[in-house]
């Protein structure tokens, strides 16, 4: 191999190394995390979050195919699959066929695995939760109590020193029942709050939905419990549906419009009918 050939092959080799390094550098690490939700003690679901650090900033990654497992990453433990949305989130309701695996112990693990893509290598995430529930109740003078219980072996045991929120369910977000943001549970697992939102609009009977919740707890995940209370102001919803309006269906036009339109039509067509009568009159005059 002469000198020129050596230089040439060295240059090619360096080029290939640079391309390989560059293509490897293009792939970012995908970070997966998972949140557990237990809504009102009967709807359980998981939300996976896919994000990656791109150009020094964390960005939510959409369109990531994710497989959800309970316990271990075995095909038999597959709960289902979901794809992350624009916010990098993928939601999966825990299906009934996971019942046996769920019942095995007081602590449960969930695993998510992403498929390898052009932009990201395969990634995993997991969460371990202890089964827990909230029992909500109300007392006189609009006092709310909630008890947090965790499953130890087969017994529901009170949990102390966990922050709990009390709120009223509204259309877009929950409204705290008082100015205090959180209430810690005592040794009996009980937290209590006073309802301070008088004259809050409720449904037609004045019912509101109270909610007690534990959010983003490392041990228990996200728990909530709801109770309907008649503490709101009854609101009668006014609807124009079925009434005579400009936007109503056929036959429900406003009376003023009908009067106006029909009067004009009758007046003009009255003239035309009169004139047709005049033609007949002229015919009579001409043919007699």
């Amino acid at each position: 191999m002469n000198k020129h050939s050596k230089i040439f092959f060295t240059a090619i080799l360096l080029q290939l190394l640079a391309i390989t390094a560059f293509s490897q550098a293009e792939k970012n690490d995908l970070s997966l995390s998972i949140s557990y939700f237990n809504s009102n003690n009967h709807i359980q679901y998981l939300v996976a979050h896919a994000k990656s650090k791109i150009d020094g900033k964390f960005q939510m990654i959409p369109n990531i195919n994710l497989s959800f497992y309970i316990g271990t990453e075995d095909a038999a433990n597959l709960l289902g699959k979901a794809v992350s949305n624009d916010k990098g989130d993928a939601l999966l309701f825990i299906p009934p066929n996971a019942k046996d695996e769920w019942k095995k112990a007081a602590k449960v693990s969930f695993v998510i695995v992403s498929q390898k893509t052009k932009a990201f290598d395969e990634a995993k995430g997991n969460v371990d939760i202890t089964k827990a529930k909230i029992q909500i109740d109300t007392l006189a003078d609009k006092k709310i109590t909630a008890t947090l219980l965790e499953l130890k072996d087969t017994i529901w045991t009170p949990v102390k020193a966990v922050d709990m929120k009390f709120a009223i369910k509204r259309l877009d977000a929950d409204l705290n029942v008082a100015e205090t943001p959180t209430y810690a549970t005592d040794s009996l697992g009980v937290a209590s709050a006073d309802f301070k939102r008088d004259s809050l609009p409720g449904d037609s009977k004045g019912n509101l939905i109270l909610i007690a919740k534990v959010e983003d707890n490392d041990t228990y995940g996200n728990l909530s419990s709801e109770k309907i209370v008649p503490w709101g102001k009854p609101i009668t919803y006014y609807t124009e549906f079925g009434k005579r309006t400009l936007f109503a269906r056929r036959g429900k036009s406003p009376i003023w419009l009908e009067l106006l339109a029909y009067s004009i039509v009758l007046a003009v067509w009255g003239v035309l009918i009169y004139l047709i009568g005049q033609i007949k009159k002229m015919k009579k005059l001409g043919l007699n």
């Binding site: 003009v268 003239v271 035309l272 009169y274 004139l275 005049q278 033609i279 009159k281 002229m282 015919k283 005059l285 001409g286 043919l287």
Partner: peptide, 23 residues
């Protein structure tokens, strides 16, 4: 066929044309 150009017919016709012109 019925038009005989009588005064009565002309009167009716002119009146009708005026009504139509306004309408």
């Amino acid at each position: 066929k019925f038009w005989k150009n009588t005064a009565a017919q002309i009167h009716i016709s002119e009146k009708a044309i005026n009504i139509l012109s306004i309408t």
